[in-house]
């Protein structure tokens, strides 16, 4: 019974807590007479969401952002895993490139958006690149870590089995690294959304980021909150999509076990 409660408590506690938060927000706005120009009430935001969704253009904006996010994320996965595998396997290459990787990592990358706009235009291109650049680093660093963390004993097994380099890579290094890649991807997908939105903030006339800026210019605070709500929803769906993928692809891994048993 206790175990049952522990396992399923989140399904009860999360909605209750979420409801309590929304209620507190509502009570706060109502009792302190906060102007809806500053903070609208939850019902007002809900109405804003409904209004926004009723407008067919909203869905178009959402698609643009989703397209940019997923394209950027896809590029980040391909380049990040590819480069991560090479750098993880070739010692001197990693040593050579490490200072540059660190330099790029500490750089506030959203500052690059203006440059990307100059290079790739006001369309989706600059946003995709921004999303890819942000999502790339956690995926690559995790891939490097994964390749380097391959169990020595497993390597001995492959050596004793006379495995070729290719077989060793396919049968051991790749599956051993997969959980690391997917952990990096979980962080990467969230960053890809951020990259796409920041790109849209600063240029172009499409996407949910652009919509948020447009609502600001129109001083439609209610709609602004609604846009943020839809963006959060999108982030949620993408994150849980990647998390579900991880559980599906690495059911043998401890991280999948935690979700199943905890």
């Amino acid at each position: 019974m206790k175990r049952f409660l522990l396992r399923h408590a989140v399904w009860i506690s999360t909605p209750i807590l979420a409801l309590a938060l929304v209620a507190a927000w509502d009570v706060y706005v109502e009792s302190f007479n906060i102007s809806p120009m500053i903070l609208p009430t939850p019902p007002q935001v809900a109405r804003g969401v409904v209004q926004l969704m009723a407008d067919p253009r909203t869905l178009g904006h959402a698609w643009v952002t989703l397209y940019e996010t997923l394209s950027g994320f896809g590029i980040a996965v391909i380049v990040g895993v590819g480069l991560g595998v090479v750098l993880g396997k070739v010692r001197w290459l990693e040593r050579t490139f490490n200072p540059f990787i660190i330099a790029l990592q500490v750089m506030p990358k959203v500052a690059l958006v203006p440059i990307f706009i100059v290079w790739f235009g006001f369309g989706s291109g600059s946003k995709i690149v921004m999303a890819a650049v942000l999502a790339f680093f956690p995926i690559m660093t995790n891939t490097i870590l994964g390749i380097k963390s391959v169990n020595r004993g497993h390597k001995d097994v492959m050596t004793s089995l006379n495995a070729s380099r290719f077989a060793t890579f396919c049968e051991m290094e790749l599956p051993a690294t997969l959980p690391y890649v997917l952990t990096g991807a979980e962080v990467g997908i969230v960053l890809a959304v951020i990259g796409a939105i920041v790109g849209e903030y600063l240029g172009g006339n499409r996407g949910l980021g652009y919509l948020a800026v447009a609502t600001l210019n129109a001083f439609d605070v209610q709609a602004m909150f609604a846009v943020i709500f839809i963006l959060t929803l999108m982030g949620f769906v993408l994150y849980f999509g990647v998390a579900a993928l991880r559980r599906r692809l690495t059911p043998w891994h401890e991280s999948a076990l935690v979700h199943k048993d905890a």
């Binding site: 004993g153 001995d156 097994v157 051993a176 690495t250 043998w252």
Partner: peptide
């Protein structure tokens, strides 16, 4: 080997 070194995947 001393440990089983089975591949967990």
């Amino acid at each position: 080997f001393q440990e089983d070194h089975l591949f967990p995947w």
